[in-house]
């Protein structure tokens, strides 16, 4: 479904963030990407989100070269990818409900769909009572669950989670990972980057290890080895 074709990225000044990376991610996979800080994990995700363009090579989503898409098609592609970040990135002036509704509105869903789906998805992440709270009234774990609810509400093909547990305590971390697993079980591809050895080892899913911008290991049922 997602295909990196010999992707290299060099930033101004010659430092290389990605070096000839090729990999394929199949539908319904749960892929973890690990590596030291600066190994190229975030750059890899940026290429996928078209926040940045590869210097060489191409990234394909199904048959589309992502860097060649025009703005309209880019927007519709982004609606097929749900995003979860370490710093949550919620809209701080909107309530929990409105944050999730915004993603649906952007996707052009009807008011009826929004009214029925938002409470449902909040129930799924166990945040039904916090529907009318603002982000600053929530704990870190709750914020991340809102972010996940927002990421999945449009039933995306893939959820990309960039260190989603980086700011969370072990209990919240465990809960977030359980939610991601549940989403994966429901048929959504998950791409997860993390520093957390415990998560990787407990998942028992595919692990891609990056070092200095290169793929050094790609195991079907991997461990966190660095």
């Amino acid at each position: 479904m997602i295909y990196f074709d010999r992707v290299s990225k060099t930033y101004n000044g010659g430092s290389s963030a990605l070096d000839n990376v090729s990999l394929t991610i199949e539908p319904n996979e749960f892929v973890s990407i690990v590596g030291h800080s600066g190994a190229g994990k975030t750059t890899l995700l940026k290429m996928l989100l078209a926040e940045d363009k590869p210097t060489e090579g191409a990234v394909f989503f199904e048959s589309d070269d992502i860097s060649q898409l025009n703005r309209d098609r880019m927007n519709s592609l982004r609606r097929r990818m749900g995003m979860v970040f370490q710093d949550f990135r919620l809209l701080s002036h909107k309530t929990v409900y409105e944050n999730i509704a915004f993603a649906m509105e952007a996707a052009g869903r009807t008011d009826e769909e929004i009214e029925s789906d938002v409470p449902y998805v909040l129930e799924l992440v166990d945040l039904g009572e916090k529907m009318w709270s603002f982000p600053h009234e929530l704990s870190g774990g709750e914020k991340q669950r809102v972010a996940i609810a927002r990421a999945i509400v449009n039933q995306p093909d893939v959820v990309i989670a960039d260190e989603p547990t980086g700011n969370l305590d072990p209990i919240n971390t465990f809960e977030i990972v359980q939610i991601l697993k549940k989403i994966n079980d429901l048929g959504t591809t998950i791409i997860l980057t993390t520093h957390n050895k415990g998560i990787i080892d407990s998942l028992g899913k595919r692990v891609i290890t990056l070092d200095s911008g290169r793929v050094v290991r790609d195991d079907k049922s991997g461990k966190y080895i660095l």
Binding site: N75, R78, R79, R89, L91, S92, F102, A103, E105, A106
Partner: peptide, 12 residues
């Protein structure tokens, strides 16, 4: 920051 988030969510 909100504008960049809105873009990531796929809003036109």
């Amino acid at each position: 920051d909100e504008i960049s988030v809105m873009k990531l969510v796929g809003a036109s």
